[in-house]
Simulated scan of single mutants.
Amino acid sequence: MPPDFFVFAAVGFLAQIVDGALGMAYGVISTTVLLAFGVPPSHASASVHAAEMFTTGASAASHIGHRNVDWNLFWRLVPAGILGGCLGAYVLTSIDGTVLRPYVTAYLTVMGLYILYRALRKPRTNFEPHGLLVSPLGVAGGFVDAAGGGGWGPIVTSTLLGSGGRPRYVIGSVNAAEFFVTTAVSASFLIALLTGHWREAGGLLDHAASVAGLIVGGVLAAPVAGYVVRHVRTQVLMVVVGLMVIMLAGYQTWQLIG
């Protein structure tokens, strides 16, 4: 077994624990590691989404089993996320998706601070996401996720939590919806490859061992993450999510200016 398999199995396990429990960061963590290994951005995004087809499926099943899903919110997010994801995949296979990173970083910083602010106040437990917020949010989250190699959770989960959503149901619903968004993005990459639109797709299979490791590690971690989000206190989750978003934004800022 190639050494890369075991490295990325560990990365996939840790990333899925974070993503399944906090509703974000599997794509960001995995893509960042792939980029550090010299994988091109479009290849990294395609590889991570291929792995996420398995990990998000396992995560969705776990959250459904633990009754963490708000089905009303779920069905609002899915079609919007699919639309945004397909558009993002088209853009990434056409231009350099890294041009979006400064804007995402600024957004994440603001949302992280706001979530921490919300965590220090009494949480709103009667929050019902409005359709006018959820649909554009799903499109934006799907687009950034595909074009930037990760961002569905940080964009969608952060905004819904910042608006006062209950972490258990926001995280569970966003994770469950992510399976359909990821599948649509992966199909878009495949169509771009088969139609010749993605001209820089050569060498994609060179990263097969890394993708396999991400899949195995993520699938093993998914049941644990579903348990964590059901039993951890709301305020604790809010604080952890806020700090995580700020750290991710800080790391991306360091990459941009480094």
Results as ranks from 00 to 15, higher is better:
176 A>T: 12
4 D>S: 10
160 L>M: 13
97 G>W: 04
24 M>S: 13
228 V>C: 15
147 A>P: 10
227 Y>N: 15
95 I>P: 01
150 G>L: 13
185 V>I: 15
78 V>L: 09
177 A>G: 15
88 G>T: 03
48 V>M: 03
79 P>M: 14
197 H>F: 15
120 L>Y: 13
105 T>M: 11
21 A>E: 07
172 G>T: 06
200 E>C: 00
27 G>E: 03
222 A>W: 05
170 V>E: 03
101 R>P: 04
113 L>R: 09
36 A>R: 05
1 M>P: 15
80 A>Q: 02
87 L>E: 06
244 M>F: 15
127 F>K: 03
134 V>S: 04
256 L>Y: 12
106 A>W: 10
5 F>C: 00
135 S>M: 12
18 V>H: 01
226 G>A: 08
237 L>Y: 12
112 G>N: 05
5 F>Q: 01
78 V>H: 07
95 I>L: 10
203 G>C: 09
171 I>E: 06
153 G>Y: 12
202 G>P: 03
49 H>Q: 14
155 I>S: 09
36 A>M: 07
163 S>I: 00
82 I>T: 05
134 V>Y: 01
243 L>N: 11
23 G>C: 07
78 V>K: 02
222 A>N: 13
52 E>M: 12
24 M>Y: 13
176 A>K: 06
101 R>K: 10
195 T>E: 14
88 G>W: 01
180 F>A: 08
154 P>W: 04
75 W>G: 11
192 A>D: 11
239 V>G: 05
155 I>L: 15
13 F>K: 02
82 I>A: 07
117 Y>I: 08
129 P>I: 07
136 P>V: 12
22 L>A: 11
104 V>E: 11
82 I>W: 07
125 T>P: 01
108 L>M: 02
90 Y>N: 02
241 V>W: 06
119 A>S: 09
192 A>R: 04
81 G>C: 07
96 D>N: 04
69 V>E: 05
219 V>R: 02
123 P>M: 03
100 L>G: 06
240 V>L: 15
132 L>R: 05
31 T>M: 02
13 F>N: 02
24 M>R: 04
146 A>T: 09
231 H>I: 02
195 T>R: 14
220 L>D: 06
116 L>P: 04
114 Y>E: 11
209 A>Y: 09
27 G>M: 01
193 L>I: 05
41 P>E: 11
10 A>M: 00
164 G>E: 06
214 L>I: 05
94 S>H: 10
57 G>I: 13
190 L>R: 09
152 W>Q: 08
13 F>A: 05
187 A>S: 12
10 A>Y: 02
79 P>T: 15
215 I>V: 13
118 R>I: 09
179 F>G: 02
62 S>H: 01
169 Y>M: 11
254 W>V: 14
19 D>F: 01
59 S>C: 00
46 A>R: 00
83 L>E: 03
